[in-house]
Amino acid sequence: MEQYGKYLLLALVGVIPILLFISPLFLVTINSFFAGGNFTVENYIKFLSSKMYLRSLQNSILITSITTIVIAPIGLSIVVATRKHEKVKRIVKLLTSLPLVFSSYVFCIALIYIYGRTGIVNHILSIAGLEFPISNLLYSLTGIIFANILFFLPYFIVPLFSSFEEVNPNLEEVAESLGSHGFHKFRRVIFPQILYGLLTGVLITFLLVFNQISVILALGAGRTYTLTYQLFAQYEGFQYGMANTIAVVSIAVTLLVTIIFQIVLKKSWSKK
């Protein structure tokens, strides 16, 4: 009876990801290899030979990499600067947890009104008599990366705070009493302890930015395509075969990045 209940619970919990996550994605993968009822790799050849699709893959990787590379040092320095001051830390935590529950699409609309063509910043600049080339900047690749950085910075900061909270204060005190301060202390004592959390944060930020669609919906202006936006566009255009293929490519990139990171993480873990 005891065992019976456990397996009932297990079946109940396990069947849901299989029904709603694994088998749909499996079906999408299978479908991407079929066109008109025959097994074929036609879709993939089309993907690899078309400049448009390759361009969106390239855009996705470019935007995501730059965003992650910029977010990591900014987030790290904000956490390092504020972690010892309880009051400030509380405010920073509150501020950064706001975007976690707000729509990134709404956020981008607000950005248009601040930094866009007729936005606040441009008006201030024009009062000062400056002609800043900011007008079209927001809709370019740079602007999209900027919006991504703003929106996903909190996603990096919040978990990083908790890995800093796990740093052993005794080790820090010992280091200080032995005359290690400032950057030296950070590099030799604290950094090794937070490295795992830091790398996990980088991976999660990368995956979140890579897989989101809202920023590009708001700022892409129908010109800049990323992989997710291309999938949406193909689906809207009834190109289901291509949509399936793009989905598989996107999953493949996600998996590849995760596996590479797992290897790096294991190395950094075993060093510790």
Partner: peptide, 19 residues
């Protein structure tokens, strides 16, 4: 398995459900 949908694009998940 339960945690991984967070790291898959929303449009991909939606496409899977529709299929």
């Amino acid at each position: 398995l339960i945690l991984s949908p967070t790291y898959v694009a929303g449009v991909v998940l939606a496409l899977g459900l529709l299929t």
